[in-house]
Computed example of a mutant assay.
Amino acid sequence: MKTIILLPPSEGKADGGNKPPLKSVSGITADLIEAIKEADPKKLYGLKEKALAKAVAVNDEILNSKTMPAIERYTGVVYDAIDYRTLKNKSDFDKKVLIVSGLFGLVSPADLIPNYRLKIDKLKAAKLWLDSNSEQLKDRFVIDLLPQAHKKAVKYDHGIEVEFVLKKAGKKMPAGHQGKHIKGRFVRWLIENNIADSKQFKDFKEEGYTWTGDFFLKEI
């Protein structure tokens, strides 16, 4: 059974691109682009002034903008920690990783996409993508590294959710933003070591995290 690693996109994205604009998009993406145009920008983006104006401008040009591979488009802590440019087996990464995008559904790292702004909890995007995304995950073993909002956009029969948990003074809490870097490091480790079985997760030991059999735990 083929292993798929599910990642969220980053909210931050690289501008520009050196590949042609998209020639076509799926029906769901087309519907969402129309919904974006009709939505109240302030409610949709939760931004103000210059940041709001930029988000509106970016989405106005989705179908006309230059594209780049998704792995280059998405920036942020998780993707910095993966450090795709230095991976020796990039082809394995491209085959195994899928990114759950609010606008484009399941995106391969090599897929060409334009800059865009759409959180998956807006415009019922997660619900719209659920059936399509889930169909693509049939007969796959899923290593799920998604936040709660993105989990609503997928269903799968075989897989494991991976969480990073902090323990302080006997109390456990989600690693949250602090867990983003280790999440990226974990994905890199999965690819570099061709990991396909959760029994091997115990061999991943970075930044003080240890696999408990259910989640990664770090005492602070």
Rank of each mutant, 00 (worst) to 15 (best):
N89P: 11
L123V: 03
R185G: 08
L22M: 12
G179R: 01
D31Q: 06
K66V: 06
I33D: 03
G184P: 03
A196D: 13
V107C: 06
A196W: 07
F215I: 07
L32R: 00
V154G: 01
E206S: 01
R188E: 01
W189V: 00
G176K: 14
P109F: 09
A39W: 02
A51Q: 12
V162Y: 12
D80K: 10
V97D: 03
I82Y: 03
D40V: 07
L128F: 04
Y84P: 10
G16P: 12
M173E: 12
L103I: 00
I182Y: 01
K167I: 08
E61H: 09
K42G: 09
G184V: 03
P41N: 05
A125W: 00
E161M: 12
S26C: 15
K66N: 14
E38G: 04
T86P: 10
K205E: 14
D92I: 05
E206V: 00
D144Q: 10
P41V: 03
K180I: 03
D15Q: 15
G16F: 13
I143R: 05
E72P: 08
E207L: 12
A175Q: 00
N115I: 10
A70Q: 04
L87V: 03
I195D: 10
K155D: 12
L118Q: 02
D83H: 06
N59K: 00
E11K: 14
H181D: 10
V97M: 09
H158N: 14
I143P: 03
P114M: 02
I120W: 00
K19P: 01
L146C: 13
Y156A: 09
A81T: 09
R85D: 13
D197V: 11
V165P: 02
K168Q: 13
N115D: 13
H150S: 15
D15Y: 13
L145H: 04
K43R: 12
L44I: 01
K138L: 13
V165R: 05
D92R: 10
F201E: 01
K96H: 07
G176L: 14
S24M: 11
D144C: 13
D92H: 11
K37G: 08
L190Y: 05
S198K: 15
L52E: 10
R140L: 14
M68Q: 14
K54A: 08
K171S: 05
E207I: 03
R73H: 09
L217V: 04
D111I: 05
K122W: 07
H150F: 11
G17N: 08
E207M: 11
P174F: 01
R185K: 15
M173A: 15
V154S: 02
I99Q: 01
G213P: 14
D139H: 06
D139V: 10
G12R: 13
A81C: 11
N64I: 04
